[in-house]
Amino acid sequence: DMKRIIAEKARELFICCDKEEKGFVCRRDMQRLDGELPLTPEQLEEVFDSLDDDGNGFLTLEEFTEGFGGFLGLNVDP
């Protein structure tokens, strides 16, 4: 089903950011994407802030999946 496919895709993309497979993405991980993605460090920071719902400085797979679902215009329960 669609939600599961999206959740799986979100997981794949999450792993691109969480290269050490810690289970979360921190600001430092995000800044490492500078050079890999056509975004400025400021934009990466902005992305991090908007995905980090509770603002605790750690981006979980759940938060990431929600953000990805929102980007696709869907509500996804991981």
Partner: peptide, 28 residues
């Protein structure tokens, strides 16, 4: 889309981020 330009909407930046990640994953 305005993503990538200064003053782009937050939504645009997010879309740019996910699009870039997706094309990085599926690209060559």
């Amino acid at each position: 889309m305005d993503a990538g330009k200064p003053g782009a909407t937050n939504e645009g930046v997010l879309a740019n981020f996910f699009n870039s990640l997706l094309s990085k994953k599926s690209g060559p």
